[in-house]
């Protein structure tokens, strides 16, 4: 029963979701919204599971003096600080000028922005590695990237200004993006869509059940 009930629920909900796309009649027309609401409610309650798990693991690290336990202290302190300040502020904890807002604006946002900014450096290092002309495909990639990058900045058109308009670097870059790139991306998208249907069908029919914790 431990496996059959989840399988049954998955199957019924999956079929209902497929049907609601084709049936505009009540109650099918409202089911998408209802299930989304239910998912949000379940996920909102489940956040406590995550928070408690984080605290449990961090406290265990600290008490057992596991390696790098100092970071666990930072996690615990940060978590408690935000939680205590948030609860102390009450209902309007997100209003401008509150202590919670201050922590959000001047601690959380800069930290988040820093992580995002690091991406720029990682793009550079990844591009450097990807664009090395090791073989024919990589050389093709390098060439396409070179043309697109140069075609996307005014320098490209300045360098090729003597050529007919359709053959300038900006036109070449647009052609690469609009045709070979779009064709490749669409091929991937079609594969993804078919994979999604196939996986969904396997889950609905109960053929794929390892996400429920095991095979047969």
């Amino acid at each position: 029963m431990r496996r059959e009930i989840p399988l049954l629920i998955t199957g019924i909900v999956g079929i209902v979701f497929v049907l609601q796309y084709f049936i505009p009649h009540f109650p099918f027309n409202r089911m998408n919204a209802w299930f989304s609401d239910w998912f949000s409610i379940v996920a909102a309650f489940a956040i406590w599971l995550g928070a408690l798990n984080l605290m449990k693991i961090s406290f265990q690290k600290v008490f057992r003096r596991k390696s790098d336990w100092g970071y666990a202290v930072v996690i615990i302190m940060s978590f408690l600080l935000m939680a205590v300040v948030g609860f102390a502020e009450g209902k309007g904890f997100r209003d401008q000028g509150t202590a919670f807002d201050w922590l959000f604006q001047f601690v959380y946002t800069p930290l988040s922005a820093t992580m995002f900014a690091i991406l720029a450096f990682f793009v550079a290092s990844a591009s450097y590695r990807a664009f090395r002309a090791r073989n024919f495909e990589a050389t093709l990639l390098l060439l396409a990237a070179f043309l697109v990058m140069l075609g996307r900045v005014p320098t490209g058109d300045v360098l090729t200004g003597f050529m007919p308009e359709g053959m300038r670097l900006s036109a070449v870059a647009s052609w690469i993006m609009n045709f070979p790139q779009t064709a490749g991306q669409r091929a991937i998208m079609i594969g993804i869509a078919l994979g999604l249907v196939s996986t969904s069908l396997r889950i609905i029919l109960g053929i794929e059940r390892s996400h429920l914790g095991g095979g047969d």
Binding site: R129, L194, G195, T199
Partner: peptide, 22 residues
């Protein structure tokens, strides 16, 4: 699809789209 090039550049192997589901 927008993240696939990054994984291709940084990882040893990448399952592209449908391969993930397979």
């Amino acid at each position: 699809p927008s993240q696939l090039p990054f994984f291709v550049a940084s990882c040893d192997y990448t399952l592209i789209g449908e391969e993930l589901f397979a």
